[in-house]
Write a protein that binds this DNA or RNA. Structure first.
Lengths: 191, 191
DNA sequence: TGCACTAACGCAAAATATTCGCGCTAAGCT
DNA sequence: AGCTTAGCGCGAATATTTTGCGTTAGTGCA
């Protein structure tokens, strides 16, 4: 025996397969109106056999998550100028605008379908929250934590998008951010 | 022609079928660990042919929503004593406790899967919000609207449950309610 | 560099899941 | 009581997902 068993082979053909399927998924997701993709179509467009897709990603949701998460890494950094209100406003406005895009909604929808079974959903939200922490630190907002950001900004934004409750990025972002500021001031006063 | 066409027939056999399927769904949902049900199992337990289930409810999600929504009507009323903080605390603590139950989680998950395609998700949340409005009115909290309740209490609670982010009903309910009170005070001061 | 080992793939068949066509039963109207 | 047809059961057709098996090609080691 010249090689240990159970070793993965991420390079070569496997990498090409992965990239081809991801590309096809991105395209079909962009064309999809309801954030759903047909695995048979992914197989046809990517040239990868459908059985391979089922074996590697198990479900359409898993494939969507895997694909979109890859994109999330290549985001523009968040503002951290020290002006908490302005920074948050920029961030939330961007978020609400993005959530109108069907593929981001598809991502979160897929995430929820997978739910708590395989991964902790927090693992996906955490990178965003981590970036946000830098904005909080720059503003010296020691009264606020990532949990506040999650509860006051992320959760309402995503939930409204998921339930198709219509929203106006400018107006809604302002109210949500005002809430954060009010809570911060309230805690600072009671400290 | 002695009868107009296109008339539905909700009584008799149709009603019996509906009830049998609902009962089977409730049972299987209670037994299910991940909030998923097998339509073949529903058909077997209810004695209703599986083709009928597919025809009437289209998908497992539709069936789950239809079943759980029926139960939601038979809830205990919310407290509306005029003590806003106490009332909200009772309500949110109950909500967080309920969300730990798998079948309620299954409901919301199914709701999101159906998403914006068939119904407006707000239609399901609206009854809860309407009840909550009575609590707000009793406390004379004119600074707050249903949207604030949705954004500050409902959205964070559901999102945390959906993403399997662990929570402690007592601690988390307190913080969420404190946020609402702080925002109310803040708006009252700036009025 | 070449060889041994086997992970990952393609293919086709099997197993499940979903939809459809058709006749029959019985709900609801007159 | 009679007539019409919505809604159901049944079985077949179609679509989706899984599995077994032979082949191809990464990867470590001599």
């Amino acid at each position: 025996m010249t090689q240990a068993t159970g070793v993965t082979r991420p390079g070569g053909r496997t990498a090409r397969t992965r990239e081809a399927v991801h590309a096809a998924t991105r395209e079909l997701l962009a064309e999809s109106a309801d954030g759903t993709i047909d695995l048979a179509a992914v197989a046809a467009r990517s040239g990868v056999h459908i059985a391979t897709i089922y074996r590697r990603w198990r479900t359409a949701e898993g494939l969507i998550i895997d694909t979109v998460v890859e994109d999330l890494g290549t985001r523009s950094p968040l503002p951290a100028t020290g002006d908490l209100r302005a920074d948050l406003l920029t961030w939330v406005t961007n978020l609400l605008t993005e959530l109108a895009q069907p593929n981001h909604l598809a991502f979160f929808r897929a995430l929820i379908r997978v739910g708590g079974e395989r991964k902790n959903g927090l693992d996906f939200v955490e990178p965003r929250v981590r970036q946000m922490q830098a904005t909080l630190d720059a503003a010296g907002a020691t009264e606020l934590t990532w949990l506040d950001v999650f509860e006051l900004l992320l959760a309402p934004s995503y939930t409204r998008a998921l339930l198709s409750i219509p929203m106006d990025p400018a107006t809604d972002a302002t109210r949500l951010v005002d809430n954060v500021i009010a809570i911060r001031d309230h805690r600072a006063a009671n400290a």
